[in-house]
Nucleic acid binder design. Structure first.
Lengths: 363, 363
DNA sequence: CAGACTCCCGGAAACGTTTACAGCTATCAG
DNA sequence: CTGATAGCTGTAAACGTTTCCGGGAGTCTG
């Protein structure tokens, strides 16, 4: 029999040619049987047997080249360690896995050039689509998003007119929920520990804080606002700076990592939480529930946003002609011990006796 | 000019054929120039210009098919949310990225069939190698590891005779470090909150705890040992059960998530840490430093293990004929406020004034 | 000026798969 | 008995790239 090509590649792994030769059929028939389309009973039997004997496993790369799909979905986030992204990632993973695909995680380290490069690299088609959650956005970046060669979904704020699938929340309003809650509990010297103002979430939260105070008729004291990074250490340092110059009775923090840093700074300064200072974080990650006292936190629905983003992406992959869509997940407030409702009543210091309810009340 | 094949595929994306035609050279020349090997000055100029004009980007899949390498490294861990894996992942990512490859993360959810399936799927070559950190190991699993079609490195304990690259620590001895430290500080009713005994780390830590107590001549009180999951909630529940039936003056926890749960349970029960009960966690994740009081914790060098595993894997990919290697990272103890050195001296409750040093002392 | 050597180029094969197409056989209807 | 039809099969092309190889042009040496 005149074999046209090697049947056993150098590394000895069987290909569809190996199977076909062994079964005494053509590679087309072998491929059809292996894919479960067509084939006579006899052919099916022979091919299956041959495949089993040689331990044939199809090569994913070759299949991808032919089918023009890789079965991979990329996720680009700033910091793989931030629990908010962990939760988002878990939700995305679930959706992606249920579609038979796999998730490829990129850590951009928040460096935007990094992220833009990633978007440009999409052109080489190593992936069927990408979910990206940028914290900074430049024009260059936007351009890369808009004319991306593969479907892209953005988690986070994006200009109204940008024709890119987008799942967002309203973090401005999220901050307002926190402020409303604190004001309702009699706190009036409310501090705010934010992340960098040149980031999209940082800017939104800053605006939200200022407008919420204004709505309550509370004059703005710039001393009560401090800015750091969206990290634990930066949050702690920022809070220490804030405490050194002024005297808040409550703190709103731009995410839970900052809030944990703030909690640490407050306790170290001998300011019990919530008796002396009430504390509200943001993102409502599991970290908030792991603190003592448990932290109140504004949920921005990160898992839900991740889930929806993944669904949007899968839909767009299935039908690239869909018009750009925009979804919004509303924020909600989980009230826990750190912003307890009995403000400013001096109590003996010590671990608060408030029983930590593992489920926060949603406002 | 007789073109043999389509130069513009249906979706309009340029291929090397497009570039070659536009530059008026063969695809071989175009490919050579684009890869920076060979080509006359004139050819280089023409090809580069043509590539730029049409915005050519090479197709990663086709390249992989030809080169038999995908540039992807897979990492399979149980729980993507456990900070110990986050740290390991970061370390691996750094090494992998510096070799120009990318990391593909799988969450196995601790289900072993899941992990074995993953190993079998490696046969389709969608990835150049894999790092896996199993917490349970069966014979089936071992077999899949040993005759994996692509290089695999295991992070964690593995039988001595298993011919698979392996980076391990000595968690038995790690537990001993914790016990020694507590005993040296006058604690004698030392409790142990462990993970499942049918896991590799759970079993090792259990053995370590028992032998350490024996070495100090402390009789074993089974009431002081409790088992749950390697999770926060389970750790908290296990600690509550333990506290309900006995009265420890110290607790060793099998990882930091459990330790945080234990801290929570202790504080809720009005047992100040470290005054009343000293607490030592394990893994020395950033979570330990984010608690108040900061948690002492046994470092098992997760970042270092990740780094080494990645290096072993890259070396094996470069030279698959290497003999199986086995590396060991020694544990060390980071002493922080939660196991402060002034035991059993009743103090007024309240936030400990111990200044939390962000760097623990290494024993 | 002839031969050897270097360099560049294009044709074609190869990576491993799926699939369009055409040919063949067997079955069925008329 | 003939023509149509359905189902199966094999050949070959295609996916987009890299690379082997042979040929041709140019340069250098003797």
């Amino acid at each position: 029999m005149g074999r046209k090509r090697l049947q056993e590649p150098a590394d000895g792994r069987p290909t569809v040619h190996t199977v076909a030769a062994r079964a005494g059929v053509s590679i087309a028939s072998a491929s059809r049987v292996l894919n479960g389309v067509g084939g006579s009973a006899e052919t099916i039997r022979k091919v299956r047997a041959a495949a089993a004997e040689v331990g044939y496993v199809p090569n994913a790369i070759a299949r991808s080249l032919q089918s023009q799909r890789t079965g991979l979905i990329a996720l680009a986030v700033e910091d793989i360690g931030n629990p908010v992204y962990v939760e988002m990632m878990r939700a995305i993973e679930a959706v992606v896995a249920s579609s038979g695909r796999q998730l490829l995680v990129h850590a951009t380290g928040g460096r935007i050039d990094n992220e833009t490069a990633l978007l440009r690299r999409l052109a080489n088609r190593y992936v069927d689509g990408m979910i990206v959650s940028p914290i900074r956005v430049t024009d260059d970046h936007l351009a890369a998003l808009v004319d991306s060669p593969v479907p892209v979904v953005v988690v986070g704020q994006l200009g109204e007119d940008t024709p890119v699938d987008n799942v967002r929340t309203d973090s401005r309003n999220g901050v307002a929920l926190a402020v409303d809650h604190l004001v309702a509990n009699g706190r009036h010297r409310i501090g705010f520990v934010n992340g960098p103002l040149d980031t999209v979430p940082g800017a939104a939260r800053d605006a939200g804080f200022r407008s919420a105070l204004a709505r309550h008729g509370i004059p703005l004291d710039e001393d009560l606002i401090e800015v750091g990074d969206f990290q634990y250490a930066a949050g702690r340092a920022a809070t220490e700076r804030l405490l050194a110059r002024t005297d808040p009775d409550a703190l709103v923090c731009a995410n839970d990592l900052i809030a944990v840093g703030a909690l640490h700074a407050l306790l170290a300064a001998g300011r019990p939480v919530p008796q002396d200072v009430a504390l509200v974080g943001m993102d409502d990650t599991e970290l908030a529930r792991m603190m003592f006292p448990q932290l109140s936190s504004v949920s921005l629905g990160s898992a839900e946003r991740g889930r929806r983003a993944a669904e949007l992406l899968l839909q767009r992959i299935a039908d690239p002609t869909l018009p750009p869509r925009r979804e919004q997940v509303p924020p909600s407030l989980a009230i826990r011990a750190s912003s307890g409702t009995t403000p400013l009543v001096p109590r003996p210091a010590g671990p608060p006796t408030t029983q930590p309810s593992s489920e926060g009340v949603t406002a």
